[in-house]
Each structure stands twice: as structure tokens, then as C-alpha cells.
Design a binder for these strands. Sequence first.
DNA 1: TTTATTTACGCAATCGTTCCCGATTCATCA
DNA 2: TGATGAATCGGGAACGATTGCGTAAATAAA
Lengths: 340, 340
Amino acid sequence: MKFEAVTIKHIAQELGLSTSTVSRALRDSHEISQATKKMVLDYAKKVGFKPNRIAQSLKERKSLSIGVIVCEIANSFFSQVINGIDSVAYQHGYNVIIAQSMESAERELMNLEYLTSSSIDGLIISVSTETKNFSYLKKLHERGLPIVFVDRVIDEIETHKVIADNYKGAYKATKHLIERGYKKIAILSNNSGLSISQERLEGYRAALRDANIPLKENLITYCDHGGMIYSEIESAMKVLLKQRVKPDAIFAGSDKITTGCLRFMKQKNIRTPQDLALIGFSNTDLTELLNPPLSVIKQPAFEMGQASASLLLSLIESKKPQTKFETRIQSTELLIRKST
Amino acid sequence: MKFEAVTIKHIAQELGLSTSTVSRALRDSHEISQATKKMVLDYAKKVGFKPNRIAQSLKERKSLSIGVIVCEIANSFFSQVINGIDSVAYQHGYNVIIAQSMESAERELMNLEYLTSSSIDGLIISVSTETKNFSYLKKLHERGLPIVFVDRVIDEIETHKVIADNYKGAYKATKHLIERGYKKIAILSNNSGLSISQERLEGYRAALRDANIPLKENLITYCDHGGMIYSEIESAMKVLLKQRVKPDAIFAGSDKITTGCLRFMKQKNIRTPQDLALIGFSNTDLTELLNPPLSVIKQPAFEMGQASASLLLSLIESKKPQTKFETRIQSTELLIRKST
DNA sequence: TTTATTTACGCAATCGTTCCCGATTCATCA
DNA sequence: TGATGAATCGGGAACGATTGCGTAAATAAA
């Protein structure tokens, strides 16, 4: 089934003009008389003419669409990021094509190949937890595809990056726990390869150091899939709770891990914060309704999306290849509630 | 900044062939010898040739992309639906372009114009709460654009529809409340114009009727923006609680309304379920962690997305215009927890 | 009146693919 | 032996929009 659209050719034929004249009239060129312009414009409006974006793309050699790869749409943080991207892209007449890696490097690569073959003009990506080999991404970048990293960045690729202030966020959260009197603060980190994990871990370390609390390596655990699989949270928690010096507080490194921890505690009838305090990165707006209301570090997800989109668009629309890149670090928000 | 891609023309030149031969070799045409095929294929692989999808689209007069309009991505139900759509579309080589109406009819119309001008091959839409005038949508449909409705449908447009069994879902929820001994069950419905609202209200009515409980009109309230604006939930609740016969249970008609109600009760120190029971439609996987764990009706969002995508693809890929349309009704799940 | 300049439009190439026609070669058959 | 027919490939016209260049008419300047 087709849906026959009006083309410039139809208009030209109907009005006894050439396609070039019609095209120019529609684009308000100065070399078309007011009379013809009006005639063309009126007729175009009447028949509901919409320029074929595909033909335009082919001619202009750009698709007016940007690709976005995140691990999962159904994750508050990323859906808010996408929301931000969408708002900016839309304003500039760009389409947003979304793909999910589901934290799998393989799917990520497939998405990458797929999106680039769809002729996207640029890419915003938050790499998966599994991503170790980014040679393909690097090759794309070297071949000139504008790329902006958001949240989870790759240091080795020089381009614009938008991240939350993970270091300070983690620092503030840990410091808060310390101030509340917790001594044995465990961290349930996201995959150790991720930039955000390292930054957050660093913040955690610094806060302990500044408070003269010795760092215990066995209080540091990782969820390699970022909490995508519940069992990894479960086993990490079990490991933590089996130790001789049991932690009295948990600092969770991602949205899924945070709520996963709470789920685990609830299952095991561990009271929060009496038995074990909990704080973590999270962007759900439901955290204050949880039991107990969760203390969280919230990232400016929407704004991060906006920032990455406008950076990408500036990259796309710049005539000459860019060499100066910036890393925007946006501050997080510490929301203290009942779980700590 | 461009990123020069290898074209069929380059290959042809390099190999001393014509573009037609290269094109046919790549598409494995029978009229090309095995030798040339191998030569072309090898060379194409070597230089990493990827056919330009835009040129293909222009030629084939289809874009291999489908548009999706929902009210908000950052809403568990819709993000799960999108997830389902994405999974099916991806398998069939289609792009998914997402737009958000934010429950505004105006934005929805803009999205509609935008997406159709981007030459989408088909559309999946869940209309906004504000949508009263669907003439534009109807016109598009009559002009041959394949459309599938998901969740919020428009009866007047004949095409495939995918919905949850809202009637039965609401019926089960209301019946459950009745069985728990609640007598004065109020409903906080979504916008009255929405198909889902009417179906859910009907289920609510039927359950009361079957239990011989007289329906009280003043226990029926509406949130015209589907809970998008918190204040509308607030005022609706205030109205309910000011009445002479105060409700002892609330049945909420959407995800946002359900959590919004809980938020309101928490603010006003209304205990759940002692002072007021609460049940509602919701798709967040956090409901069991809430305080109290919420009883909810859960829709098979992912599956609904899958179904609508495959229906849309069948519509797109069918040679002749379809006249037989189906409405898939997928059953909901009643999850009973502490709030009732 | 003649020349220069502006105005307003058409022609045709282009973007990268696909595909309808031909054209050529070589084997096959009556 | 001439005709038929596969097999294999190239030429070139699309798809819809844009744009450099050319040119006729209209206007201004000389």
C-alpha cells in the first residue's frame, strides 16, 4: 500500500512551470517573482505539498536524523535522557532513532552497524557495560561520524562528552553516610570497566579518606551487568553479608542496583535503615514513595540529554572538522530521605 | 563534516564494471556470473561497502522506518511498549522514530506532520488525552498511511488495534476491592474521552452492578491530563474526600494517577489501606517496593508493543489495501499486594 | 537608440540505487 | 548453416529535490 504524495513535479506540471522554479519559489528564492511565488505557495498549500525528506537527504547528503544508543529505554535515567535529546532534536528538525543495547556489546555493535547504514548524521551513545572493544566506534569516529558520549564515556575517543558529576555525587553520598554515623560502608558498583563506575568509586574512596576511614577492599563489589540481571545483585549482597565485618550501609552505583538492593533487603527482611542503610544513584521519581523513602543521588538526566543533543548538532552543522571538544559535567542532587 | 561512504559507483569504476552489474551482483541476481559476483562481493566487503539506505528509500519509495507517537517515553507503560515495538521492528530491518505528545493535542499534530513528512512507512500511535479532533489522522489513513493504534484507540478509524483488556482488568480490580469488604469505591479515571477510560469505567460499573452495589456518580472523578499534572490528582482527591460519604477505596485509572494518589495520601498522612485502600493500573516494576506495596493491574506492555509492530509491518508489506482489521485484546494481570 | 544590467525563469546535472531494455557472446538445435 | 536462446553485462532512465548556468525579456543607463 502506498500513499501517493504530491511532488514538486506535479505542481510544476499543473502550474505550467519548471520544477526548478517551483523549488525556488517554495524556498523563497529572490529570483522568483512575487506573483509566481504566491501562485506556487497557494497551490502547494491547497494540495498539501510536503517536500520529500528522503530526496532532500539524498541531495543534501544528510539524513536529518540522529541515532541514539542506550542500554535500555525502560530505565528512568535513560528515558529522561532521551526525552532531553528528543526535545532539542525536534526543535532543529531532526529525527531521533533509538536503539537499545540491553547491556550487550554484541547488540551494541549490531545497532551501530544498523544505525550507520541508515545514514544517521550523528550519534549519541552511552556504551554498554560489556563494551571493551570500541575499535568499530573509533573507526566510525575517525571516518568523520559526529559522536557525543553521554553518561558512560570512552576516554580514548576524543569528542564531546556529557556526564554527571559522578565523583562529587558519590562523594556527597558517602560523606552523608559517614555523617550519619555509618562506619562500614559497602559499595555495590556497576561494571568496573565503565567510566561512571570508576568516577563513583573514586568519590567513595575520597570521602572515606577525608574522614580517615580505612578503605576495606572486601566492601567493594561489582555488578557486571549494571543490575540488569537481578541475580548478580543478589549474589553480590550475599557476599557482602557473609563477611566477618558486615557492612552497615550500602552505596549503590546505579538505578537498577539501587532498587535491586531494596528488593533484596525486603526479601530477606533486612530493615532499612536500622539493619542496613541504603543510598544510591537513581532517577525514578518514585523513590520517595518507596518503603522506606530512599535517599538517592539524582542526575540531571533531561538536561544531560539536551546538552548532548545540542553538542551533537553543533558538531553536525559545523563546516570544518572540530578539534576542540568539551566535557560537560553536570552536577547531581543529593536527596536525603529515610533510608539513611 | 562529512563521512565519505563507498558507493556502488566506486566499486564499478574500480572493478571495471557498470553500476548495474555491481548492483545486481550485490543483490545476488541470477544474471550475473559466479565469478563476477565473487569479485564484487569480495571487494565490497574489503572496502566495507554499505548500501545507502536513503537512495534505496528514494528508489523503492519506502523509508524502512516507522513512526511511534506516545504521550511520554518516561512512563513505564509506554517505554515497555516501545521496547516491544523496537524488538520486532529491528528484526525486520526497520527504524523506529519516536515522538512524544506530552498529552497535548497540538504537539501530537505537530509530531504527526513531522513524522509523515519524514516519509515513515507506517505509524503506531496512542493518542493523547486531549485529542478530540482526529480528522488529520483520519485523512492520513484514508490517503493510505498504515496505522496501528495501541492502548488508546479511536473507534472511528478502522484499522488494527492493540489494547489491553481494560474492561476485565477494571472489573477484576473492582471485584477484588468489593471482596475485601470495601463498599464505597471511588474511581479516579483518566480523561473521559479516552477509549481506555471508558472501558475501565465500564468494568468498574459492571463489577459494582454484579455485586449489587449502587453506583454513586459523585465517586467518579476524572483527571483530564491523565495525571500528567499532579495538581489535577490533588484536586480530584480533595473533591472525593470532602464528600459526605467518603470513599474507603480508590481505583486509579492510569500509571501516573496511581502513583500520584499514593503521593497525595502520603502527603496528607492518609494511611493505606486502613484509611483508604488503593489499587490502580500501573506498569512500574517498583510497585511492590512502595509503601505500602501497591496492588495493581498490570498490562502486557511489551507484548502489546510487539503485537502492534507486527500488525503494522503486515499492513506495510501487504501488496493490496487491507480491509479486514483486527483488534487484539490482551489480558491484564491483577497483582494483589498490601494496599488493598 | 544602443548598450548594460537586472529580473525571472528553464535546462540539465546531481545525489546513490534499482531496473527495464538492449547488446554481445557462445552454445544448441532443426 | 542459420536460427534460437541462454548467459552475462552495459546504457540510461527513473525516484524527488536542489542548483549552477544559460537566456529571454524587461528595465536602466549612456
